[in-house]
């Protein structure tokens, strides 16, 4: 890996985004609008908003980054730019980490806006620190980027890439404990939810909601999310081949 090539890649991805202000606006504004909506959906029971709102602060960055990254990488694969880059002295890690850095930067802004809004304007009541929510949101964004990079290898068109969102993320959303506590599910489903990374993204958030300071479970949840992201990046690197048929 070469830092200047990695940074050049990150800057290039951000430059591409800068030519597309509508996408930036959607990435930043939609989570805020949805969280505001949720606040008034749970108008009668603010306690539910505290837990669901915190969970969603973790889920939004994951979903947005997954979607944006999978399409961006797919374009790279289908437009011939990937083939060209791989005939040049660019390491696979330079490309993957460059993407992760660029979308990570967007995720920082997105998470800061969403967290700031829910805390200051929507009155989310959380025992722990808002900074910890931000840390989890970032880890989740990193996971979304990594998963998006990985699944883009299995999509031949943008139609297929978009379908990976319901295929890969919706089951995790149903099983992550947002709707029903994971322990109350049918045992098989509960077992499945134990091996899905989004469960830990949401668990990490609820640790912050219910505890002050950094708990052991919080560290474990964060480590699982980051570990899954690194694994997905490594698998993504394996799908980038310099020689193709």
């Amino acid at each position: 890996m070469n830092p200047s090539r990695t940074l050049a890649t990150a800057r290039r991805v951000l430059r591409q985004l800068s030519h597309d202000p509508r996408t930036i606006a959607l990435m930043l504004v939609v989570p805020c609008v949805l969280l505001t909506l949720l606040k008034y959906v749970f108008d009668a029971n603010p306690r539910t908003f505290d837990s669901a709102g915190a969970s969603l602060l973790g889920i939004f960055p994951l979903v947005t980054m997954f979607l944006v990254t999978s399409i961006a990488t797919l374009r790279e694969r289908t437009s011939g730019t990937l083939e060209r880059l791989l005939t040049m002295p660019l390491g696979k890690a330079d490309l993957l980490v460059g993407y992760a850095l660029a979308f990570g930067a967007v995720a920082v802004v997105q998470a800061a806006l969403a967290t700031g809004l829910t805390f200051l304007a929507l009155g989310l009541d959380v025992t722990g620190s808002a900074w910890l929510l931000l840390v989890v949101a970032l880890a989740d964004a990193f996971l979304g980027t990594a998963l998006g990079l990985f699944v883009s290898a299995f999509a031949a068109s943008e139609f297929q890439a978009v379908q990976f969102l319901p295929a890969v993320l919706l089951p995790q959303l149903l099983l992550c404990g947002l709707f029903v506590p994971r322990g109350d599910m049918q045992p098989v489903l509960s077992g499945i939810s134990d091996v899905l990374p989004m469960s830990y993204a949401v668990d990490g958030m609820s640790q912050v909601v219910h505890h002050t300071g950094v708990t052991g479970d919080f560290v474990r949840d964060l480590a699982v999310v980051a570990g899954c992201a690194v694994l997905a990046l490594a698998l993504g690197a394996a799908t980038l081949r310099r020689r193709t048929t």
Partner: peptide, 22 residues
């Protein structure tokens, strides 16, 4: 088929590839 980024200008494309080439 031209393998350039359509959402970058010509100069930005060249600038990036130049960085990749070291």
């Amino acid at each position: 088929a031209p393998s350039v980024y359509t959402d970058l200008t010509a100069r930005q494309n060249l600038d990036y590839y130049a960085a990749v080439l070291g």
